[in-house]
């Protein structure tokens, strides 16, 4: 991890007239990791990303993107940042290939390399067959993929993706996840905003929760064990609850009655629980985390705010 790489934002604020879109955000996204930016609609995710992308001046606070300040060193910051907006406007009459070569030219990449890069990226996002179709025939998901390719044209150190998964089919979502993991493995800083939490669960290393324009929590997803709820089901639910009562474990039954939820500190505890349950003769049919880490964390935050 380079000392000045990645994204650092401290005390960032931005208001539009009387609306405080971003009130106070602290955010650190490290190179080599995928960071999720999570928050409800209207929580200021897009505004924050615009500031990180160097399009909007923060009213207060400091930002550093790939070692450059987007306010004072905007040009340098832009050269190292790839930004994919949530609404993907496109030059409708251009073909997908032309969109990419145009963006490459705008990043001052020479024509021959731009062509090669466009071909490469089109294959990467599985649009090679549609490469020479005008962009307006592309479906929403295909446009979204083209937008992702566009953000990658200049091989940026920092990727800012605003709702990249919206409109994508399941296959494309898996592809997106694999791609982002690989970019992170290659040392890029990836910041993904979304409110589809199950998706982020599988790709994010870290998560930053914002709400009402403020950072409300920062969690690590992949590092170590996180206490969370696990769902436990058995062939005979009554045998299971009896056993749980006997061993004195705290649990709650799910409202739809298919299983019980147990709070466990980590995976080792889950394995131990399973072993002792089976040992006690309970026919456990499944034991799995109930919902994603992020979903639980997000809902817990919602609870706290009420």
């Amino acid at each position: 991890m380079t000392p000045d790489g990645g994204i650092r934002a401290r005390g960032v604020r931005r208001s539009f007239g009387p609306v405080h879109a971003v009130a106070d955000v602290d955010l650190v996204a490290a190179p080599g990791r995928v960071t999720a930016l999570i928050g409800p609609n209207g929580s200021g995710k897009t505004t924050l990303l615009l500031m990180l992308a160097g399009l909007l001046t923060p009213d207060a606070g400091t930002i550093s993107v790939a070692g450059a300040d987007p306010v004072t060193e905007n040009y340098v910051a832009r050269s190292r940042t790839g930004w994919m907006p949530d609404v993907f406007g496109t030059w409708d009459s251009l073909t997908a290939r032309e969109v990419l070569t145009t963006v490459a030219a705008a990043y001052r990449i020479d024509a021959a390399r731009a062509r090669a890069r466009a071909g490469e990226l089109l294959e990467l996002v599985h649009l090679s067959e549609l490469a020479d179709q005008p962009a307006h025939v592309l479906s929403r998901g295909q446009k979204q993929r083209l937008g992702l390719a566009r953000a990658l044209v200049h091989d940026p150190d920092v990727l800012l993706l605003d709702e990249p998964a919206s409109g994508l089919d399941p296959r494309s979502r898996v592809d997106l996840r694999v791609l982002l993991r690989r970019l992170a493995a290659a040392g890029k800083t990836v910041l993904v905003s979304s409110h589809v939490l199950t998706e982020l669960d599988e790709m994010a290393d870290d998560a930053v929760f914002i709400s009402g324009g403020r950072t409300v929590a920062t969690r690590s997803v992949a590092d170590g064990d996180v206490p969370r709820e696990w769902r436990l089901t058995a062939l005979d639910p009554e045998a299971l609850t009896r056993w749980l009562d006997e061993t004195g474990r705290a649990y709650r039954t799910e409202s739809d009655g298919t299983g019980v939820l147990v709070e466990l500190p980590g995976e080792a505890a889950a394995a131990a629980l399973l072993r002792s349950a089976v040992g006690a003769g309970v026919d456990v049919s499944s034991l799995a985390p109930a919902g994603g880490v992020l979903e639980q964390a997000y809902l817990a935050l919602e609870e706290e705010r009420r």
């Binding site: 390399r113 990467l124 091989d155 694999v178 791609l179």
Partner: peptide, 13 residues
């Protein structure tokens, strides 16, 4: 994902 992400990184020339 048939293409390697890192092939020929066209750093802004």
């Amino acid at each position: 994902m048939s293409v390697d992400v890192q092939t020929s990184p066209p750093a802004p020339s």
